[in-house]
Amino acid sequence: MTLTATTAAHADATSTVWLRACPVDELEPAFGEAVLLRGRQIALFLISPEEIYAVSNIDPVASAPVMARGIVGSRGDRRTIASPLHKEVYDLSSGECLTEPGVMLETFPTRVVGGVIEVEVTG
């Protein structure tokens, strides 16, 4: 199952690859964890096996690798993640910061292939 949330930056990229991150059942619902993909730290959030989000683990404001440890929630019908450091809230699909205009969190498309979560990153 794919849940794409393609950012503008991403659409422009020429070559992308799907990388295997981890089995779906490694993650606990709404409890984010980090994966290391080609030297990149990516935070994964499983809402349900049909709804999985991937964003950069680096907090755009504090530049610290902590996003996976934030709290998953919602604002209206947008799924959100709150930075554990200063509580900025980001839209999980678009990466848009809902509390600090102009700040963006990098997001990545995900899919599940044979019980394994894959994340699409630029080659």
């Binding site: 606990e28 619902p29 709404a30 409890f31 610290a64 902590v66 440890r69 709290i71 450091l85």
Partner: peptide, 21 residues
């Protein structure tokens, strides 16, 4: 019991997160 994802980051790690994570 699934409470982990509810916790503030400090409760979740049973330690206090500092500014660099």
């Amino acid at each position: 019991r699934g409470l982990g994802g509810l916790q503030d980051t400090n409760d979740r790690a049973l330690a206090n997160m500092q500014k660099d994570g």
